[in-house]
Amino acid sequence: MKKKRTFTEWIRSRDGQQVLVMFAFMVIPLLLLFIFTYLPFAKMFGFSFYNMKYVGVRKFVGLKNYIKVFQRDDCFGALKLSLYYMLGSIVQLALALYLATILSFKVKGGNLFKGFMFFPFLINGIAIGFIFKFFYTRGFVFDTVLQWCGFNLENLPYWLKDQRINNFSLVGTSIWRYFGQNMVLFIGAIMSVDSELYEAAMLDGANRFQQFKYIIMPSIKTIITLNVILSITGSLSAFEPPYVITDGANGTGTYFVVMHEIAHTQQKVGLASAMAIVLLIIIFIATILQKLFFKYVFRSAEDEDPRAGARRQKMLERSIRNQERIAARGGK
């Protein structure tokens, strides 16, 4: 027979205390999340339907801003630049994975290298922009280093002026900054792999590459997937390198830089908000596509594994049976 409890009794009970504590802990982060993320977002979503500046009268224009986003050349033209950054993020992840694998084995001065390579991530993005502005300046750091290597200054391109390569120069800065962080994440994941597996593999005669392919890769695929998704979506919203180094000029204005220009210089806040919403949708789509892609890739690998195991099992059983048969014959 269940006794009916009053609210005060319930709140004092174990169940009530659990709920209370849960609520007390949740309310602050949720409130912060709401105030600084969802509320501004909802506001921005509202702005995207208005023709407005920061100050002054607002005029409701419905979907006109969204139509403009799709009509303007500069909005979607800027998205093409994201391809450079996506390409860069693949190079960045490959490099990070390679170095992480090497550094996760015993290397002399490994921690020192880890520190050096992680260091750029700790520097402020704006400072990095200024560093690379001088780095790429004609006859400055990069050209000087290349001249030491035997290059002639006349044969070197203008790293930021030449529109064929300036986006690659900018992507280079982004790789330099983020590969260390990716590497540390990878190292962390690789550390969690059971070291007995390496020993076993070594006894079986597996070389380093085979260890990487059959032990490390499958063990850290979750973290690889995560990094790829973050890098690809990040490259859609690249902002700091082009904004600080070239001010988005000379054909380096990414979607974010164009958005910033429209929002702050032209003060078309509504249009910029619509651009932000469109970008959000694009990022959603890109993320979902990647999720589906990885699901497909890894599932097919998983599907194959158990069958392969079963096959091996069968072979083993057959060979044991054969041996038994042989032994039985020999015993005759």
Partner: peptide, 8 residues
């Protein structure tokens, strides 16, 4: 200037 993108 030679390289206008890196003016200071």
């Amino acid at each position: 200037e030679d390289d206008y993108t890196t003016t200071d």
